[in-house]
Nucleic acid binder design. Structure first.
Lengths: 107, 107
DNA sequence: CAGATTGATAACAGTGTGGTTATGAATTAG
DNA sequence: CTAATTCATAACCACACTGTTATCAATCTG
C-alpha cells in the first residue's frame, strides 16, 4: 500500500526536478523550451521530469498550440507540511508524556 | 554543488526509511533490534537505512554496550520546512506582483 | 572461558532512475 | 505546400539504490 505521500517525496528527491519546480514557483508559467534553456539537461530529460512532477500533482500542464505551458501547483505540498508537523507533534507529545511521568513521580 | 537540502530529501524519499524515522519520532529511543522487529526488512537493511538517516542528520546513535540506541533528531527537518515555505512565498509574491500589475492597470 | 546476542559491514543480485540520442506527431511560419 | 519548431516517446546505457545472505567484532551471560 503506497502512501499518498510517496509520489510526493519521491518527486522532490531529485535536485534537477526540484530546480524545475522552484523555477515554476518563482517565475510562474513556463514552456518546456524555457525550462530546458535553464536546466542543465536535455529537453527529453526535462519532459520526463515534468511527467514525474505532474504525476505527483506538483505541476499542471496547459497545451497551447505546439507548446506546452507548465505551472506549479504548490497546494500539492500540503501533505508534506502535514507530515512534517505530525513528526514534530509526535516529538512534542513524547515530551508531554515525559512531563506527565515526572509529575506522577513527584506525587 | 550539492544543496544542503539534498541529503535530507533523498533520505526521506524511501518509505521504509520514513517508517523508521516516524517510529523514532513517535516512540523515541529504539535499539536496532526493536526497529528491525517492526520493519519489514532484515537487520542489515535497517542498519543501512539508519546510516542514511544519520548522514542526513535525522537521527543520532548512542552506543550502549552491545546495542546501539537511535533517536530522532526532528530539528533536521528545519531545512525542509524552510524550503517549503519559500516555495509558498514565491507563489504568494507572484500573486502580489499580479495584484500590483492589476492596480497599475486600473489607474 | 564458551556460547549467545547485537549490530555493522562486505559481497552480491535485481531493479529503478536519470541521462542520452533518435524519431515522430502536431503545429506554425514562409 | 514545404520547412521549421516544439514537445513527447522509444530505445538504450550507466549507475545508484535497496534488498539479500554471510560474516565478524564486540559484548554480555552462564
Amino acid at each position: 500500500m503506497p502512501q499518498p505521500h510517496d509520489a510526493l517525496f519521491r518527486a522532490l528527491a531529485d535536485p534537477t526536478r526540484r530546480a524545475i519546480f522552484e523555477r515554476l514557483c518563482r517565475d510562474g508559467d513556463q514552456t518546456v523550451a524555457a525550462l530546458t534553456a535553464h536546466a542543465k539537461v536535455s529537453q527529453p530529460a526535462v519532459s520526463k521530469h515534468l511527467g514525474v512532477l505532474k504525476q505527483a500533482g506538483l505541476v499542471r500542464d496547459r497545451p497551447e498550440g505546439r507548446q506546452t505551458h507548465y505551472s506549479a501547483q504548490p497546494k500539492a505540498l500540503a501533505p508534506l507540511i502535514d507530515w512534517t508537523s505530525q513528526m514534530a507533534t509526535f516529538w512534542q507529545n513524547r515530551f508531554d508524556d515525559l512531563e506527565d511521568l515526572l509529575k506522577r513521580m513527584d506525587q
